[in-house]
Amino acid sequence: MRSPSPALAVPAAPRARRRPSPLQLLLILCLLLAALALASASSGAVRIPLAHLADLWRTPADPQAAFWRNVLLEVRLPRVVFAIVVGSGLAISGAVMQALFRNPLAEPGLIGVSLGGALGAVGAIVLGAQSLAIIAPAAFVGSLLATGAAYRLGTVQPGVANLLLAGVAINAICASVIGVFTYQATDVQLRNLTFWNMGSLAGANWSMLAWLTPWVLLLSILLIRDWRALNALLLGEREAQHLGFALRRLRHRIVILCALLVGPLVAVAGTISFIGLVVPHLVRLTQGADHRWLLPITLAGGALVMTLADWLARMIVMPAELPIGIITAFIGGPFLLWLLTRRQG
């Protein structure tokens, strides 16, 4: 080997940023999440003093302790767990979509999952459904149908750009039909509709979380297992194929996994925007785009951001609460603008 020329040997010191190791970052995020979850669980209309947390169980007979324990276990904890599950699910599907479309601005909503789900829910509400037992399945079916349509029509021609355009078209159709439904809705129904349009974590309860949590966990694991294929996709579609990933099958699998992951989330929490866009970005900025680490860290990051957003949603107008989609959009919008201007600079 010849020694490298002097010009090349100069280290790129000014450009190199110090990055925490992926494992360190994951650990930090998990610790932050734990602290935030505790803070969020303790605050609200009823303040539960964290200092006495252990006492709540040591004095089972004390009525105040029993009340706090009840609020904590039946109201706050399900809510926090719900935020963690929804946030991590939305964030990881955003990261995966961005790899699939090779575009940092992609998010699960692009293939119709969110608006399709909202259409299903809004349709069910306006047609008279009142219980979540009907509305949630309607939302799920809506998101699967919309995604299925976008996928089928978008892959008639090869190339991922067509899938994106089909998604845009399907979303436009869904939005217009939602508009029609909204126009026809009664006042009571309108209040219900805002839930689906802006998202809410108010529906948290253990029986729903008992199936949602393992479901999101399972699909997240399946997506993380594809980290090599997702990395290869970043190189390009031909390159991914040269590296042994059958492109059509891979795209098919990723779209289906994302729809199965996001569909139920929309069904129980409505459409919550920007988490899938913002969180993977932040992680990429600190950690790079290697999906082996990007995906697990995105899970933790999504959980963290969503828990924070939920906390804010409950604190700002206490004792009422803001729809959480307003908070995430309020953070996400400016962030996106910053990202766009930063790229040009």
Binding site: E239, H242, R284, G288, D290
Partner: peptide, 13 residues
């Protein structure tokens, strides 16, 4: 295969 002008726009080492 090394295709012509590969494009990678994501941040990887």
């Amino acid at each position: 295969v090394l295709p012509q002008s590969p494009s990678l726009s994501f941040d990887l080492g």
